[in-house]
């Protein structure tokens, strides 16, 4: 006789989230860019438009056969590092100037939403999943060398501290990148700083959380972390805090998260994104989530590599 027994609390499960083929970020602006006014926003979207033409995005979605790709667009507003003007005026300005250039924003996200969203401490969650890139001779004997609040891609230059009595003092040595090709490009990233016990997460760290959200790779207790909220009012509140972390602006938009992301950013964001990729390379995504997404993409006839970094593309806008 066949019999089975199971206890739900004993099983490993993770939610499966809706996925597009491609998530396109139409821009990321600092507070001062936004407060520079409508004209500068309009100018910005004119620079973006040629790179976000539908044919181009369809090609980037890399869907096999004749299928119509699911592509969604998004825009991230920085309401974390500086106080912005009111959403009641900024959001309509954004949407209208984008539309003037033929662009459509499906989802609007707040940068503070990458810190905490829907009661989920997202930034902390991601920090808790960092697995530092090991330097040579990391046998597991010692925990990875870490400086609280920093993450790097190699070995820091050794500090000449006190050593065991009567033992030689180490000479100076440069910082080195792990797995370098002869020469190093060493990067040390500040993840957060702290004043009066209050932690402020860094821009690259939150941008890494943002990529993970767009790739549908985060779970909290097995559940989906952020579900975009539909916004079908014509007006917006006075305060950013009164908005959900991610607003869905067009009702028929393809899902927010996607197998791949494509970000169109101003050229000055290049160092930030170098840091983002370095951080992402050290984030442990739950294995079950990784597998699930690869399987689903296979089911759609796509070949998705397991490395997160292979799913991320950029375009850095010329001035």
């Amino acid at each position: 006789m066949e019999s089975s027994f199971r206890e739900a609390t004993a099983e490993e499960r993770v939610a499966s989230v809706p996925l597009s083929h491609l998530s396109v970020e139409l821009g990321h602006l600092y507070a001062e860019d936004i407060s520079a006014g409508r004209d500068s926003l309009a100018a910005y979207f004119q620079r973006v438009a040629p790179w976000a033409a539908e044919a181009r995005l369809t090609a980037l979605a890399r869907v096999s056969g004749q299928r119509r790709p699911r592509v969604s667009t998004c825009f991230l507003v920085d309401d974390y590092f500086a106080r912005l003007g009111s959403p009641a005026t900024i959001i309509p300005d954004l949407l209208e100037t984008a539309a003037d250039s033929g662009l459509h924003i499906d989802y609007l996200a707040r940068e503070s939403g990458c810190v905490d969203a829907d009661q989920v401490p997202l930034a902390q969650l991601v920090e808790g999943h960092l697995v530092p890139d090991p330097a040579p001779n990391s046998t597991g004997l010692r925990p990875a060398v870490s400086e609280a609040g920093w993450l790097c891609n190699g070995q820091r230059s050794p500090v000449n501290g006190p050593s065991e009595a009567m033992r030689p003092v180490l000479p100076w040595a440069p910082a080195v990148e792990n797995g370098r090709r002869r020469h190093s490009i060493f990067l040390d990233i500040e993840l957060w700083d702290q004043t009066d016990g209050r932690r402020t997460w860094s821009c690259p760290f939150l941008a890494a959380v943002w990529q993970l959200l767009r790739l549908g790779l985060l779970r909290y207790q097995g559940r989906d972390v952020v579900v975009p909220k539909a916004w079908d009012h014509d007006t917006y509140p006075q305060e950013w805090d009164d908005l959900p972390a991610i607003l869905q602006l067009s009702p028929r938009a393809a899902p927010f998260s996607a197998y791949r992301t494509f970000s169109i950013l101003d050229g000055r964001f290049l160092p930030v994104e170098h840091a983002v990729r370095t951080i992402l390379a050290q984030v442990a995504v739950e294995p079950l989530v990784l597998e699930q997404i690869v399987e689903r993409s296979n089911g759609e006839g796509m070949r998705l590599a397991p490395e997160i970094s292979s799913r991320i593309a950029y375009l850095f806008l010329p001035e």
């Binding site: 027994f5 206890e7 609390t9 004993a10 099983e11 490993e12 989920v120 401490p121 902390q124 969650l125 920090e127 808790g128 999943h129 697995v131 530092p132 890139d133 090991p134 330097a135 040579p136 001779n137 990391s138 046998t139 597991g140 925990p143 990875a144 792990n178 779970r219 909290y220 207790q221 097995g222 442990a284 739950e286 294995p287």
Partner: peptide, 27 residues
């Protein structure tokens, strides 16, 4: 691990299993 579940079973004996942690090695 923040945000990851501990797996619990009661039968045939109480057993609680932590989420898995990952450590990098190069050696």
């Amino acid at each position: 691990v923040p945000g990851e579940r501990v797996r619990l079973s009661q039968r045939p004996i109480a057993h609680a299993l932590s989420p898995e942690l990952m450590a990098g090695v190069d050696c």
